[in-house]
Amino acid sequence: MNNLMKAFESRRVEREKTTLRNSKSNYRKNLNIDVPKGLYEKCPKCSETVNMKEMYDDAFICKHCGDHFKMRAIDRINITVDQGSFIEKGLGYITLNPLFNDGYDEKIKKYQEKTNLDEAYIYGYGRINGNPCVIGVMDSYFLMGSMGSVVGEKVTRSFEYAIYKKLPIIIFTASGGARMQEGIFSLMQMAKTSAGVLQHSDQGLLYISVLTHPTTGGVTASFASLGDITLAEPGALIGFAGPRVIEQTINQKLPEGFQRSEFLLAKGFVDKIVKRSDLKETLAKLLKFHRGY
């Protein structure tokens, strides 16, 4: 086995450890990104102190103001699927550097070490309250969850896997959009993933898209907006153009709450806003209603 393979395998094992957590203390040991800096941290919205150790039990929601914190993909899977039921698929993809962008390889390597992910998207088979489905999650800690060739390929693969298994698919999106470093290849992933949605839909299967903070750019303009059912988390930023770009274009400040989930609900682009604590139950119910699709 060469070094590259070893690296892939060790990251996978690390991820599996977090999924196969036996006790909460074991889980906390593995939280190495945003949590372990201190036992108590300030909530970015209400500035109240929150006990980070309790965050996992609270599904990463601030106890005081109900703000939904950003989440790692693996945490999302842990709180969504039945314990031990997740089997990761689509392993072994290697990100390349098609435009020979300076520093891109190092950046990818850095994020891989930091997050134990191969890329900004993981998917696999899982059960939610006993209902089998394919579940895919984007990780915004990995280069803003941006969609390059590998993410596009894996998203398309997850739809194909769902077609193969005749299962519904749930995708949690969290992305800054297409990955600039891969240029035109990233743009083409929008067409590729949309065609994946079409083929899955043609089989009469269910696709639930869950929009989480933040979902913008090329991901909003492709598979994220194409769900049979579109759910959103409260207060998530969802839009095509980023707020800064719009402000520069129209030369004025954006109104409060613009491009947030509640705004999209009012404008008719989201079926329902679901609190993170109710998300698992809602998804389980929806899957149950669509059993056989």
């Binding site: 929008m190 079409l198 303009a221 907006s225 095509f240 153009a241 719009i246 008719g268 682009f269």
Partner: peptide, 25 residues
């Protein structure tokens, strides 16, 4: 695509996504 208030209100992302999906088919 135009990045403006009205465009976002009326679902620029959804409109593009829908085009991509329908054109593929």
């Amino acid at each position: 695509a135009y990045p403006g208030l009205g465009a976002e209100e009326r679902g620029q992302g959804e409109a593009i996504a829908r085009n991509l999906l329908e054109m593929s088919g």
